[in-house]
């Protein structure tokens, strides 16, 4: 299906190149489930009409998304979403979800309050992801 209302918002004053803003906004739509596999992205002409964005900029963004395996062009039809960035591992029936629920139950039995659990999770998260986030941001 064609996604109605997917409009790119280009911040002309920002230092981020316009094509990267389109890449980021598309990824965000994939994460939030606004875009799903099989959806067609707006054509360069449609983006040009609604947002007055240079078609080469849109095509450059789509090529970047294609390189990352997120979308694929189908000649004569448009550019389509190949895979979502919404993760099945986070669904309610996933093993990770089950383990976390069991852990929460044990924490409650042990007498921990809501804030205690939140602090524990935050500190474990910091330990696992803190360093990684840093490495990623300097790598860009």
């Amino acid at each position: 299906m064609v996604v109605e209302g997917l409009e790119f918002r280009i911040d002309r004053r920002s230092g981020v190149p316009a094509y990267q803003q389109i890449v980021q906004q598309t990824k965000q739509a994939l994460r939030l489930g606004v875009l799903e596999p099989g959806d067609r992205l707006p054509t360069a002409k449609e983006v040009a009409e609604t947002s007055a964005v240079n078609p080469n900029t849109t095509l450059k963004a789509y090529r970047e998304l294609e390189r990352e395996g997120l979308v694929e062009p189908r000649p004569g039809l448009g550019t389509f979403v190949r895979r979502s960035l919404a993760r099945p591992q986070t669904g309610a029936d996933s093993p990770l979800h089950g383990e976390l629920e069991a852990w929460m139950a044990r924490a409650r039995e042990a007498g921990l309050e809501r804030e205690d659990v939140a602090a524990l999770v935050a500190s474990a998260m910091e330990k696992q992801y803190g360093a990684m986030t840093e490495a990623r941001s300097t790598g860009e």
């Binding site: 280009i10 002309r12 004053r13 316009a18 054509t43 360069a44 002409k45 449609e46 040009a48 009409e49 609604t50 947002s51 007055a52 964005v53 240079n54 078609p55 080469n56 900029t57 849109t58 450059k60």
Partner: peptide
Amino acid sequence: MGTLMAEAAEHGTTVLMSSHMLAELESVCD
């Protein structure tokens, strides 16, 4: 600008345009 970009998208037209509006060029020109 939207019309201009859409026409260029459809026909692959090369465009050379002079402008004083620097901010406007940012999203329009590659």
